[in-house]
């Protein structure tokens, strides 16, 4: 096994750094770019992890040279990953488009539900206090109706 090379590692690291930075943005399109970069970086990482470069893993007549061939398994995995990344990229893209169509922009906004939850603390507290079972009293009041529905 040959020792690894720094250049490839630097490219992987750089792509991850750029991808992560873009992923942390609020513009969906930037997220999309970040996603693309992360995909590239991961595919490269897969290949590098398999070991040093080699000849194409094609045997027989089409084979050129006697170099040891590269590991084909991560290549097959990366090929699958490329196609899946493509599908996901396009899906993200249609989300960008849809977001633009519905909201007029492609910014990721804070989740409205969560925001409401944070803001309505006061209101909820009072609502909880008014919850019926709190006012239900004790003793016989709880079983005010038996299974026939007739009041005791």
């Amino acid at each position: 096994m040959n020792p690894p090379d720094v250049a490839a590692a630097v490219v992987v690291g750089g792509l991850f750094a750029a991808g992560c930075y873009l992923l942390l943005q609020r513009t969906l399109m930037r997220l999309l770019f970040g996603f693309l970069l992360l995909g590239h970086a991961t595919n490269l990482l897969l290949l590098i992890a398999a070991g040093s470069p080699g000849a194409p893993p094609i045997i027989g007549a089409a084979r050129i040279g006697d170099e040891p061939s590269a590991d084909p398994l991560p290549q097959a995995m990366a090929l699958t990953a490329i196609v899946i990344t493509f599908a996901l990229t396009i899906f993200l893209l249609s989300l960008v488009y849809r977001s633009r169509q519905l909201h007029g922009n492609d910014e990721v906004r804070d989740d409205a539900e969560d925001r409401r939850l944070a803001e309505n603390q006061q209101r909820e507290a009072s609502a909880a206090a008014a919850d019926p079972h709190r006012t239900n009293g004790s003793g016989q009041a709880r079983t005010a109706a038996d299974e026939g529905g007739n009041t005791l």
Partner: peptide, 11 residues
């Protein structure tokens, strides 16, 4: 981290 990781896993 990922750069180092790449170096480590490949070696």
């Amino acid at each position: 981290f990922f750069g180092l990781f790449a170096l480590v896993v490949s070696s």
